[in-house]
Computed example of a mutant assay.
Amino acid sequence: MSGSEHLILFLVSLVANLFSAFSGGGAGLIQLPVLIFLGLPFAVALATHKVASVALGIGATLRHLREDSLERGLALFILACGVPGVVLGAQVILQVPDRAAQVALGLLTMGLGLYSAFNPGLGLVAEPRHRDPAGRFAGGLGLFGIGVLNGSLTSGTGLFVTLWLVRWFGLDYRRAVAYTLVLVGVFWNGSGALTLGLLGDIRWSWLPALLAGSLLGGYLGAHLAIARGNRWIKRGFEIITLLVGAKLVLGNL
């Protein structure tokens, strides 16, 4: 690639991951299609994007750790439920066509944004719930299912985790976004990247620009989310979910 193409990758990655870190997901809306447009096959683009998105989680982690936003027990629970699903999904996506699945995922993603928009008080104040064994079991199944989607169809699945943590476990948006960026960004995406890398290919020469943009975008987006608070994050979440969903549907019709 030329120097100008590396610059384009850096800028695309910076913008995509800044918005993702602010709203709790959606970097694949911009980054993954650009990798495909520049000539990578879908499986290679997905694996390369997964590796780059780990830097998003690292950048956001550096900012969120200063706020002490995470409960260790809940964080370990999210990892234990989600990572097996990610590994399973990453293996499945290399075996099946994905167009119909992406259309369905797009419609569901738009539904998330509309659900949040029509519930104006959702996620503005933390209201912990479903922390009993039965509630955790159901919540864990939800996280496992989202993990499968995360490993297979990368665009926007972090948004599912954000809303699930808000709706089921009663987190406010700011704290839910922190969990999503740290745990999904670093560990879920790291597991998916490792699985796809072992089973497929990664375009290593494209990664320096992508990693630099993801790291910086993740930090800046997390800082913006902390500074603006729940109401702004909620609006950002709703906008990004609608855009991600529309892109997935229209891009596969």
Rank of each mutant, 00 (worst) to 15 (best):
L253T: 08
A100M: 11
L181C: 03
F187M: 06
A104R: 01
G236D: 13
L196R: 04
M110D: 02
L62E: 00
C81R: 06
L196N: 09
W188T: 05
D172F: 03
F10D: 04
R175L: 02
V12E: 00
A222E: 08
V87I: 15
F77C: 13
S116Y: 05
G200E: 08
A75C: 15
D172E: 12
I240P: 01
L181Y: 05
R129A: 12
F137Q: 03
A117G: 08
F19W: 07
R66M: 01
L141A: 15
L56Q: 10
F169H: 11
A100P: 00
P33N: 07
L79T: 10
G190H: 05
S214P: 15
G185P: 07
L153D: 08
P120D: 05
P133D: 09
A126C: 03
F169E: 10
S23M: 09
L216W: 06
V186N: 02
R175A: 01
F187N: 02
G142L: 14
N150S: 13
V87C: 04
A52K: 07
L183I: 07
G28M: 01
M1W: 09
V166K: 12
I240T: 10
F22R: 06
I58H: 00
L149D: 01
R66E: 01
P120F: 10
A193R: 10
L124F: 13
L253P: 07
G156M: 06
R72M: 06
G156W: 09
M1Q: 10
L224K: 00
L108W: 14
I226A: 01
D98W: 01
L224G: 00
T154I: 14
G200A: 11
V34C: 06
G106R: 00
D132E: 14
T241H: 03
S152E: 14
V182Q: 11
E127H: 07
W164C: 03
V12R: 00
L11F: 08
G200L: 01
A134K: 12
R66F: 01
V103H: 08
L171Q: 03
R63M: 12
Y179T: 11
F19S: 05
R174P: 04
L7A: 13
L171C: 02
A45R: 05
L141S: 12
F169A: 08
N17M: 12
S13Q: 05
L65D: 03
N119K: 11
V166P: 12
G113N: 02
T180G: 06
L242K: 11
F160I: 10
G192W: 05
L149P: 04
S116R: 04
R131A: 04
S69A: 09
V83F: 06
L220I: 09
G82P: 11
R63E: 13
Y219R: 12
G185M: 09
S4C: 05
E238G: 04
F137E: 03
G39S: 10
G142M: 14
A178S: 15
A209S: 11
A246S: 15
F144C: 11
A16V: 09
A246F: 14
L88V: 08
G229Q: 05
G121H: 01
W204T: 00
D201V: 15
Q91N: 03
F19G: 08
S20I: 07
G26Q: 02
I78P: 08
V249F: 12
